[in-house]
Amino acid sequence: MKTSRILAAALLAVGSGLALHAANAQQAGLHRTDLLQQDIGLPGREAIQVRVDFDGGAVSIKHSHPGEEVAYVLEGSLEYQLEGRAPVTLNAGEALFIPAGVAHVARNVGSGKASELATYIVEKGSPLVVPAE
Rank of each mutant, 00 (worst) to 15 (best):
S77T: 15
S16A: 13
G44Y: 02
N24P: 02
G125K: 04
G93R: 08
S126Y: 05
L96N: 10
Q38F: 00
R107K: 12
L20T: 00
P66T: 01
G93K: 09
V129W: 13
E69I: 05
N108T: 09
R107A: 12
H65S: 01
I6Q: 03
I48M: 12
Q27A: 06
E68K: 14
L74K: 04
F54E: 10
N24G: 06
A28Q: 07
L90Q: 01
V70F: 03
A47C: 03
Q38H: 13
K113L: 11
S111E: 07
A22L: 08
L7I: 09
A19N: 05
H65C: 11
G112R: 08
E79S: 08
A95W: 07
A95I: 05
E79N: 14
V130T: 14
A58R: 00
A100I: 00
D55E: 11
Y80E: 09
A19W: 09
G93I: 04
Y72A: 10
S126T: 03
P99S: 08
A25L: 02
E79T: 15
A58N: 03
G17F: 10
L82A: 08
H31P: 00
A58W: 02
T33E: 14
Q37S: 13
Y80W: 11
T119A: 07
P131Q: 06
V105T: 14
L20D: 12
K62G: 02
K124V: 06
I40Q: 00
A23W: 01
Q26W: 05
H63W: 14
A103V: 12
L128C: 07
K124P: 00
I121S: 11
R51V: 12
N91A: 12
V52K: 10
L12T: 12
Y120F: 06
V105G: 08
A103D: 08
E123W: 01
L30S: 10
G67K: 06
A100C: 03
R5F: 15
G84R: 11
L74P: 13
S111A: 10
S4D: 09
L18T: 05
M1A: 15
A47I: 05
A86C: 07
G57D: 13
L82C: 10
S16K: 05
E68N: 15
A114I: 01
H104R: 09
E123T: 06
M1D: 12
G125L: 05
T33M: 07
R45I: 04
H31R: 15
D53C: 14
